[in-house]
Computed example of a mutant assay.
Amino acid sequence: MGTVPEDAGFPVRAAVRRPRSRPLDRLLLPAGPDLTWLAAKVAAGVLTAEISWRGPWDKAPKAMDALLNRRLHGKAVLDIT
């Protein structure tokens, strides 16, 4: 995993997650009833977790700006290499 830039302009440690995806049924954290319901809907294909923007870590400010100004209709994913 690469290094985390300290001048990203937001709390970077809160945004970092594992670079590989895990199936919804293999989450290790206990989930409350609302999250369990939501995860079940996504797993069943009733809801989608759309990714609207994907880019490298050095473009994080651009992603944050787009999210905060509601120019994205989905999730922003930062690739950490």
Rank of each mutant, 00 (worst) to 15 (best):
V46F: 05
D34G: 11
V4Y: 06
K59Y: 07
P56S: 14
T36Q: 13
G2F: 07
T48P: 00
K59R: 15
D58V: 10
G2P: 10
R17P: 00
L38H: 12
A44R: 05
D7C: 02
V4R: 07
A49M: 04
R18N: 13
R20L: 11
A15H: 02
A8H: 00
V16E: 01
A14I: 04
E6P: 03
F10W: 12
P56G: 13
P30Q: 11
P30V: 12
D34I: 15
V16F: 02
R54H: 10
F10S: 08
V16D: 02
L28K: 09
D58H: 15
A49L: 08
S52P: 00
A49H: 07
R26Y: 08
G45W: 03
D34C: 13
A39W: 03
K41P: 01
F10P: 02
V16M: 05
P33W: 01
S21Y: 13
T36F: 05
P19G: 09
A14R: 12
W57H: 06
P19Q: 12
G2V: 15
P5K: 04
A31M: 13
V46T: 15
L24I: 02
R13E: 10
G9N: 09
W57S: 04
G2D: 09
D34L: 14
D34A: 14
T48Q: 03
L27A: 07
R22T: 15
V42T: 07
A15V: 07
E50C: 08
G32P: 01
W57M: 11
A31E: 10
V12Q: 01
P19W: 10
G9L: 01
G9V: 02
P19D: 14
A49G: 03
G9H: 05
L35V: 11
A39H: 08
R13F: 08
P11G: 09
L29N: 06
K59G: 01
A15K: 00
V46L: 08
T3I: 11
D25N: 09
L29P: 00
V46A: 13
T48L: 05
L29F: 09
R22H: 14
P56E: 13
L38C: 11
V16Y: 03
A43W: 04
L28W: 12
G55N: 13
V42P: 02
R17D: 02
V16K: 03
D7G: 01
V46P: 01
E50N: 12
D34Y: 12
P33I: 04
P5W: 06
G2E: 08
P56K: 15
R26G: 02
P5I: 02
I51S: 03
L27P: 00
D25S: 10
L27Y: 05
V4M: 12
S21L: 14
A15M: 06
W53A: 01
